[in-house]
Design a binder for these strands. Structure first.
Lengths: 147, 147
DNA sequence: CACCTAATTGAGACGCCGGCTCAGTATGGT
DNA sequence: ACCATACTGAGCCGGCGTCTCAATTAGGTG
């Protein structure tokens, strides 16, 4: 369940700065939750966070998860079975590649997708405002192991 | 809330044929549910179906919804708020354009997306097996009304 | 047509995820 | 130090979907 100690995950300080600049308070529970999420790494469920932060109430976990999503610090991952997981966001707009074997999540972004959406907009007359894209498959490691 | 009396929605008979050829029984409740879903049109929640089919148990509605999904007769739509709706599928692989104003759903498919996914696979080393894409915006009608 | 077996059903309990309420607490500006 | 108010936690609530289990029914068979 390899904790990708990966890339651009935002530092605690930068997260705290983002909170502050949004006019939000920097409270104990919030600090604790950010730390917990960093420690969990990769992706985690709301309940993972609840269990890993015994001092913090369930409601606060959900509220904080939502707040951090609104601030772009945390993002949701829709798994292939429809379940929802969370993840510290590593930067701007991106999508997820989820390994259906080990569950590891990688990010990618694609300028091509924007072109594709423009095309859809043109063909359908819709004004396209947002989208969701999740991709499922086998990560290189699991490919190497399995068949 | 215009019930797009649209395109390629499969006929009752073809649905019954699909059930039969899968080795599933053609029961009263199943017939009733298919009719109800056709009458509901567009997209509907599981609960819409439950309410519109008073004679059929809740469990059966959910079971049938799942069965019809497996058979490709019904598909899920993930709405912009994360809620899930259902819809009679109109053919093969496709994606959804959901109007965030009136909720109407249109289908589209895109060969370009496949190319994009190939590209992702190449760049990341993942073996891409499946994906989810939902697009949100304003349908032409709502664009005309709203600003 | 009657019969038999396995698939299906319905009622209701259950579980998970997330939100709401409301009284109590803590933050951070003055 | 003080105060307004943002935040918290405990518990209850509600939606969505699944499970169990006894009763029913589809549809193949002789």
């Amino acid at each position: 369940m390899a904790t990708q100690s990966s890339e651009t995950t935002e530092s605690t300080e930068s997260i705290e700065r983002t909170l502050a600049s949004g006019g939000f308070r920097l409270t104990g529970p919030r600090r604790a939750l950010v730390e917990v999420m960093q420690a969990l790494g990769g992706r985690f469920s709301a309940d993972d966070v609840v269990e890993a932060a015994p001092g913090v109430g369930r409601a606060t976990v959900f509220r904080t998860l939502r707040l951090l999503q609104d601030l772009g610090i945390v993002c949701q991952v829709v798994l292939d079975d429809g379940a929802v997981a969370y993840r510290l966001a590593s930067g701007g707009h991106h999508h997820h590649l989820v390994c259906s074997e080990c569950g590891v999540v990688s990010d990618f972004s694609s300028g091509d997708l924007e072109g594709l959406l423009d095309d859809i907009a043109r063909r359908t007359g819709y004004q396209v405002d947002a989208h969701r894209l999740e991709v499922y498959g086998l990560c290189p490691a699991c490919r190497a192991l399995g068949a």
